[in-house]
Computed example of a mutant assay.
Amino acid sequence: MIQSYDSANKNQPLIATDRAGQLLEQPAIDRIWALLDEVPDPEVPVVSVVDLGIVRDLSWEGEQLVVTLTPTYSGCPATEFIEDAIRDALHGAGIGNLRLQQRLAPAWTTDWITEAGREKLRQYGIAPPVGSASKRTLLGEEPDVACPQCGSHDTVQVSEFGSTACKALYRCNSCLEPFDYFKCI
């Protein structure tokens, strides 16, 4: 019997397979969620694809694992990398019979970023989205963005676009540090 191990607990097998690579038992969905919570976003590697809310659903259809994903936006250049990373993580855990499918409706929103993900962004130096993706955001109301370095709210937007299209570049007037703000979408 071949065993694949859970990265969080090296002593307990995630799943077991026979010599032909067939699953002897399907891992529980919560174990798969935990595995995918270790797959980093390629653009902001301190947050996982689960933290960002990109992984929408996991289900077993017979012996096939179906992973439903919603990209952050339809033109995101990281979408293929994310799908490959998820596929690689699942294959590495011994799950070879899987299907990745995209669900575009409802569209991804920054509201789906977990609280843990928001804190990881802040600690990394990126201000997490403020509020929710409401109509006010679409009408151009400026958010009250706190500096992730010093916590000051005395900040100003320098550019509508930061290191990626989903971020804006801000500067703190207190500590004078520039930082990215993950825009509400």
Rank of each mutant, 00 (worst) to 15 (best):
M1E: 13
I2D: 11
S4Y: 15
S7M: 13
A8C: 12
N9F: 12
N9R: 12
N11F: 12
I15K: 00
T17Y: 05
D18M: 10
R19F: 14
E25N: 15
A28L: 11
I29Y: 06
R31D: 13
R31H: 12
L35G: 04
L36M: 01
L36F: 01
E38M: 11
E38Q: 15
E38P: 09
P40M: 00
P42N: 04
E43S: 05
E43I: 00
V47R: 01
V49Q: 09
V50Q: 01
G53T: 04
G53W: 08
S59P: 10
W60I: 06
G62E: 00
G62T: 05
V66C: 07
V67W: 01
T68R: 14
S74Y: 07
G75H: 01
C76P: 04
I82M: 02
G92N: 09
G96P: 10
L98K: 02
L104C: 09
P106E: 09
W108N: 02
T109G: 04
T110E: 08
T110D: 00
D111N: 07
I113W: 07
T114A: 02
E115Q: 13
A116R: 15
L121F: 03
A127Y: 05
G131T: 02
G131Q: 07
G140V: 04
E141N: 13
D144R: 13
D144A: 14
A146V: 04
D154M: 10
T155F: 09
Q157A: 12
V158F: 02
A165F: 05
C166A: 11
K167C: 03
A168L: 05
E177C: 12
P178L: 08
P178I: 01
P178A: 03
F182D: 04
K183A: 07
C184S: 15
I185Q: 15
